[in-house]
Design a protein around this nucleic acid. Structure first.
Lengths: 209, 209
DNA sequence: GCAAATATTCAACAACCATTGAATATTGAT
DNA sequence: ATCAATATTCAATGGTTGTTGAATATTTGC
């Protein structure tokens, strides 16, 4: 596999600095939003020069897209794993398993829903990318499961697609606003309590009525 | 009432240009977000010079706060009106009325939830202002009603506060993402159909189980 | 119409931004 | 040790931003 043109060998640390940049960028983008974050901030956090970011990722937008598509891949894998784990069970159980895996992913990487929440804007190149990379696959996944679950019980729930979309986004935005929520509602600091409320209200209440 | 120090009289058109600026700013902030919007864009839309904005509103942040507190006042008035209209009925009916009025307000001024959605960020001066000006009063209003409604039926629903907070934010973000939702779910273009789905899923399903 | 007060514009500022091209450092194969 | 290739930094650039102070226009009481 001699893909390289030069005679030298690339460094091994390559991905180290790239990973540091990605990590810092995800934090900053999630906390402050794309427009309020400067490449200089990210470079400072990652301990590299600003120019390196443009060199590696082809610019600010390129860095953002890289982060989002990485998150999309991770999420897709988590969902497929959940599907494999519950292959033999009924449709209803599989839906429950997927919902649980989705919530677990969000709780594990709260920066992702925060970033999602910020960049689901109306007029922006990024939002289209976000819709296709994250929202659409997720939506299709849950629609399919929810329909199978409904058929299994011989039900035809009203606004099923609307309900699914609402579940996905409510879950993401609730996790994203968790700290803020803590100032309005008690018990948000405790991880287990928060997860239980999420599961009960959003899954059992909104998704699977 | 001789509050003025000068001898001349101020213009009458004052509020005209101010209103034009506010209107343009609300549109831009809602569509693009605070940071992605420049005062020059807003001034262009409103047909005035950039400097006028800083002169009138004391800067970009001042303009933003002015818009938000205006929206807060409008919303509070709409809710009080709904409360007056259903004063004699039961607690459950009053909760329903308030929820309906809230949804109607959001549908009537979709820029407000869009702005809300964008600026509920983690690290920002504006988000605190937003929380206190819009979120907190709204939350208190619905908590009170929901608790009264629960007592009326001798129920103690689990996670009541969490459920209320989720209702408020789900409603706001669903309206804010309506156009995007249309690409995932059918029937979002029709106003009546969209309102019906909102009412059924969010009010009857999530808020009043 | 004069004068005072406010509204609006004009012009300029300093700060910051992302990006780029050249210069340097580091790596690994030979 | 040498050399080529990549990784990283340095320095500069053109553009945009929000704000400010001076200049002009407009309004209204006298």
């Amino acid at each position: 596999m001699t893909e390289r043109r030069g005679r030298g060998r690339p460094r091994e640390n390559d991905s180290d600095t790239s990973a540091a940049i990605s990590r810092a960028a995800l934090q900053r983008f999630a906390a402050q939003g794309f427009d309020a974050t400067s490449l200089r901030e990210i470079a400072g956090d990652a301990g590299v020069d600003v120019a390196l970011i443009s060199y590696r990722f082809g610019g600010k937008q390129g860095l953002w897209k890289d982060i989002v598509s990485q998150a999309g891949t991770d999420l897709r894998e988590a969902l497929e794993r959940a599907l494999d784990d519950s292959e033999t069970t009924g449709a209803h159980k599989r839906l429950e398993h997927s919902a649980h895996a989705f919530l677990a992913y969000l709780l594990d990487r709260p920066e992702v829903p925060r970033l999602l929440l910020r960049d689901i804007t109306i007029d922006s190149d990024r939002s289209k990318w976000l819709l296709e990379t994250l929202s659409l696959p997720l939506h299709r996944h849950f629609i399919e499961l929810a329909q199978a679950a409904a058929e299994e019980r011989d039900k035809t729930p009203a606004h099923l697609e609307f309900r699914v979309a609402n579940f996905i986004y409510s879950a993401a935005s609730t996790v994203a606003r968790r700290e803020r929520l803590g100032k309005l509602v008690g018990g948000m600091e405790d991880d287990a309590q928060f997860a239980a409320a999420l599961e009960e209200v959003l899954v059992a209440g909104a998704l699977i009525p």
